[in-house]
Every structure is written in structure tokens, then in C-alpha cells.
């Protein structure tokens, strides 16, 4: 595969144990090892994390923004999936 630029990697940081890795930005790097190194320098200069993930950007499969209605609207009218849908007597409402 002919590459002129270093490929793009998405960077995910776990800020401390007990929390999820969260997307925080992207870097260019020639391979995975250097992507981690660059991500450390760019995104964790102030103890922002205890663990890093890097994923080559073109390996991420994203939902189509035009498909937002069919993907996400069906959840809109299912309010019975939320605990607040159910009105209980005051004495037991902390349930």
C-alpha cells in the first residue's frame, strides 16, 4: 500500500482506574508503537491518564449521520424504559 503521509490514529485515554477509556483526539504516526508514544506526548502531559488506546482511524466503523432518525428515533417514544415513568406512592417512591 502506497502511503505518503503518516496515517491517522484515534486516541482514547483512561483517566484513572475504574473509568472507561474516553476518546480525546487523534495523532499521526507511522505505526502503532509510535502512535502510542505520540499520543502520550500530545494528550497526557499533565497526568491526564493511566492507560492509552490507539486505533487506526480507518478501522473505526461509524454509523451514517443520515441514518440518525431510523437508528435513534425509535427509542424516543419508549419512555417506559425509564424508572421515572412509574408513579409510585410517596412511601415507596425511593425504590
Amino acid at each position: 500500500m502506497e502511503r505518503k503521509e503518516w496515517p491517522l490514529w484515534e486516541v482514547f485515554v483512561r483517566s484513572r482506574n475504574g473509568l472507561d477509556h474516553k476518546h480525546c483526539g487523534s495523532v499521526h504516526a507511522p505505526d502503532a508503537k509510535l502512535a502510542l508514544q505520540v499520543a502520550r506526548d500530545v494528550y497526557t502531559r499533565r497526568q491526564e491518564g493511566v492507560s492509552l488506546w490507539v486505533v487506526q482511524a480507518d478501522h473505526i466503523v461509524a454509523s451514517d449521520p443520515d441514518a440518525k432518525p431510523e437508528l435513534f428515533d425509535p427509542a424516543e417514544d419508549k419512555i417506559y424504559r425509564h424508572p421515572t415513568f412509574y408513579q409510585l406512592p410517596d412511601e415507596v417512591n425511593h425504590m
Partner: peptide, 26 residues
């Protein structure tokens, strides 16, 4: 040194933001 490194980092955050609009870093 830390400040100048930050400026480099800021440039990189911003290039990445610009790239989301369909232009390449190069």
C-alpha cells in the same frame, strides 16, 4: 520547555480539528 511543548501540542490538536473538515495534514 513545558510551555513551548504545550504550544506544539496546541498546534496538533488544531490540525486534527481542521482535518475533520476533509483537508490533510500535509
Amino acid at each position: 520547555l513545558a510551555k513551548v511543548q504545550d504550544e506544539g501540542g496546541h498546534g496538533l490538536y488544531l490540525y486534527a480539528a481542521a482535518e475533520t473538515l476533509g483537508v490533510s495534514r500535509d
